[in-house]
Amino acid sequence: MTSSSPAAAIATATQPQRRSRRGRFEPYLLIAPTVLLVLGLMVVPIVIVIGYSLFDNVVTNQNPQFVGVANYVAILGNPAFWNAVGNTLIFTVISVVIHLLIGIGFALMLNSKLVHGLPRTIFRAIYILPWIFTASVVAVLWRLLLDPSGVINYVLTTIGVLHQAVPWLATPATALISVTVINIWSGYPFFMISLLAGLQGVPSDLYEAARVDGAGLVRQFFSVTLPALRPIVYSMALLDLLWTTQQFTLIWATTGGGPINHTEVVSTFTYKLAFNSYQFSMASTSAVVILVASLFVAIFYVRQQKKASQS
């Protein structure tokens, strides 16, 4: 019978320590690629843009001068900025509200027992079509439809609703509502699919208990369906609020912010400052203001998600 040497005993004792040390660093190694991507694609650009907003004019000026918050005072005192903010609020609020209403309506219809089998499959395919198209395709499609010689004007003049064709996207009175309708059409499937998934998760026992208590369809909707869907509705509404306020491609490809800035939103306003007027510092300032406003919505969204997970 031989006893282990001291060196072997020490090596055996240090192996668990090495494993524990390696196990301690493994999670950091796994998240390192994501952290580097976030730093490189988000944090660093945001810091650079904030830095640009504190100088008189960068990129075009070889020796930019530090001006502090002067750019913020200028942008907040610019009537064109507040016009863009007002258009953004109108565009966003109407889009989010109608997205929600249409989404709930179609989700209820597709979840109804009256629609089943092949008709339900066909309706699902038709209703989800707008979500398949990219924003540029949607813009081209609706520009053709809303053209003075397009299908919509032809139908409305044929049935007598209009006496002559209307350039919907080129008329100040109709341009903003037209791009809002386009955004509603392209975005409602997101609500519909999410709410349909939520409806299918509501226990049928709740509806049976409500019917036993004498509740009709309307009462069941407000007492059973809506409370069950409330967390989903909050999450979808806040996400849609963030996405819609940052909408750029659809508006740029349909109206470019015109006519006469009637569809100018904060995203197109910022883009024009940078690449039309070459005022990169002012564009950075506008972007920082938008970022701060979006952060408030994002923080509220995270808080709602935390509450929902804890309940």
Rank of each mutant, 00 (worst) to 15 (best):
Y28A: 12
L76S: 05
P167D: 09
P64H: 04
L206M: 10
Y301R: 11
V35F: 13
K306H: 14
H99P: 00
G160D: 06
I159N: 11
L89H: 03
K272A: 11
Y52P: 04
L242T: 03
Y271N: 13
A80G: 04
V289P: 08
T225Y: 10
D147V: 07
T180S: 09
I122N: 04
L199Q: 10
P130Y: 05
Q15W: 07
D147P: 05
F269E: 05
I177L: 09
E26W: 15
W82M: 02
A173F: 01
A11E: 12
N153V: 07
V265K: 02
T174R: 06
G216L: 01
S95Q: 14
D240R: 13
V166P: 01
F91M: 07
Y301M: 11
L41I: 07
R19M: 06
I182L: 05
R24D: 09
Y28F: 10
R230Y: 11
F191Y: 15
K307Y: 06
L54S: 07
I48G: 05
S311A: 13
P119I: 06
K113L: 05
V140N: 12
L291Y: 05
N261L: 11
S186L: 12
L100A: 13
H116D: 08
V288D: 04
T121K: 15
V44R: 08
V59G: 00
W185M: 10
A293N: 03
V115H: 01
N261R: 15
Q304M: 13
Y188R: 05
Y127S: 03
L250N: 02
V166W: 00
A84D: 04
V233N: 06
L176K: 04
I104S: 03
I182A: 02
H116L: 04
L29I: 13
L110K: 04
F106I: 05
L141C: 04
A197H: 09
S53N: 07
I299T: 13
V69S: 11
A8L: 14
S95K: 12
N261M: 05
G198Q: 10
R143I: 05
G198M: 02
W131P: 02
S294K: 00
N111A: 08
I31K: 05
L144N: 15
F248P: 00
A139T: 00
T263Q: 02
A209S: 14
